[in-house]
Computed example of a mutant assay.
Amino acid sequence: MNLVETHSNPDVSIIIPLYNKGQYIARALNSILAQTHQNFEIIVVDDGSTDNGPEIVQGYTDPRLQFIRQANAGPGEARNRGIRESRASLIAFLDADDEWLPTYLAESVQQLQAHPDCAMSAFGRFLGSDRTSWEAECQRFGVTEGEWRMPINLDGQSTKQIIDFFHPGAIVCRRQVLERFGGFYTKNGCNYGEDVYLWVQIALNYKIYRNPTPLFWWHTEASEISAYSTRKIVPPWPMLSDPQPLRMDCPPEYHSALEHYLTYLAVIAAERCIRAGDRGTAEQLLQNYPVAQNFLGDYLKLQVHLWLMDSPGLRDRLRQVKSLVRS
């Protein structure tokens, strides 16, 4: 199949959100063009860049590449714009500072063709400039190759480990599934956890083909997530501020697992807020998500941070939560 044919009838649409990644975008595009599977289209959505990234993209002459500009709206909206402009039944995502190994697309497409009941395929990854494999870590919390359906009645920590396996750059998803949930979460200008919200919705409702083999390279050294972690100002996940869509789409058998997951996230988010000096958000999180008994260890660690803040109101709230934990 030649480039003209693939340009007119792609079976995979690849969406790249671009925002001030001029020093990396060529690496991402070149990794796509080097794929053994060549029947694709590439849609780069420039999200208001102020560097030379757009000029680098426009220097590529491959007819399968489409370039779109928009005012800055965040990575979720950029990906959603790409989905709306795409044509294929399968959608893949790659951030502008990351890259794929040459067989990633071929193996992803092959698995979705072989497993039509699966909503998406998800592969493992390498991390950082030293290309550290995350495969052993994935296997440690139970990721094996094959069709997978989320177990019911999981505790919150186990659910988080499962969801953490998913990364946009290592996922190929069926269009109808993305359209069912409206794509990535974008309310209130969300630019953190917008992808996790979507993976939770999909994991609660569909089978997924998982493979811990690393065929995606996440360059964490170039990611804003690393900057968030360094400054300890990671905002709470959108699942905590807007959980109702998750609850409405959640099958009854997964209600317990979802609530445990949300509570576990609330513990982590509250602790982060305390470290950043944001007492108000931490208190609100505790009020919205009383800590369940199986999170007692995390709760006690959080209690130390809150007690050191020397707030009578927080101390009173902690006593109330403590009674719930022990009941």
Rank of each mutant, 00 (worst) to 15 (best):
Q113I: 13
N288E: 02
R125S: 10
S49Y: 11
C250M: 08
L178G: 04
I225S: 01
D249Y: 05
L262K: 03
R175I: 14
I274F: 04
V200N: 01
R210D: 02
F67Q: 01
L154V: 11
F123L: 06
I32M: 04
A269P: 04
L94W: 10
A266H: 14
L215F: 13
N9D: 13
A270P: 08
L29H: 04
L154T: 12
R174A: 13
C173L: 10
A227F: 02
R247I: 15
R81S: 12
I202Y: 00
Q113L: 11
A26D: 13
W148A: 07
L262V: 06
P238I: 14
D195A: 01
R272D: 05
Y254H: 14
I83P: 01
S223A: 12
W100S: 00
T132V: 07
G124Q: 13
G277D: 02
G189Q: 02
G74P: 11
R27W: 05
N153M: 10
P54F: 06
M239K: 01
I171S: 04
W199C: 03
G183Q: 09
W134Q: 14
Q303A: 11
R84F: 10
D278G: 04
I268L: 15
E147T: 15
S158T: 15
N30Y: 07
Q111F: 08
K232D: 14
A270F: 13
A257E: 11
L314R: 01
N153L: 12
L286Q: 09
Q111N: 13
A266Y: 13
A26M: 08
L65I: 15
I202G: 05
C173Q: 04
F166P: 03
Q23A: 09
K21L: 01
Q111E: 08
R81V: 14
V4A: 11
T50G: 05
K322T: 15
T220Q: 07
K21P: 00
E135S: 05
C250G: 06
E107L: 08
T186E: 02
P102F: 14
E283D: 04
G182E: 11
T50N: 03
I202A: 03
E253G: 02
L18T: 04
G48P: 09
R275M: 12
K21V: 05
A78T: 06
Q176E: 14
L198F: 01
F40G: 03
G53E: 07
S108Q: 09
H260I: 04
Q113G: 11
E221V: 07
P245W: 02
I15K: 01
H37F: 15
I268E: 03
H167G: 02
I43V: 15
M120S: 05
P214Q: 09
R140G: 00
G59E: 14
I162E: 08
L246T: 15
S133P: 10
I171G: 03
P245I: 13
R315C: 07
E271D: 14
N153Q: 13
R174H: 13
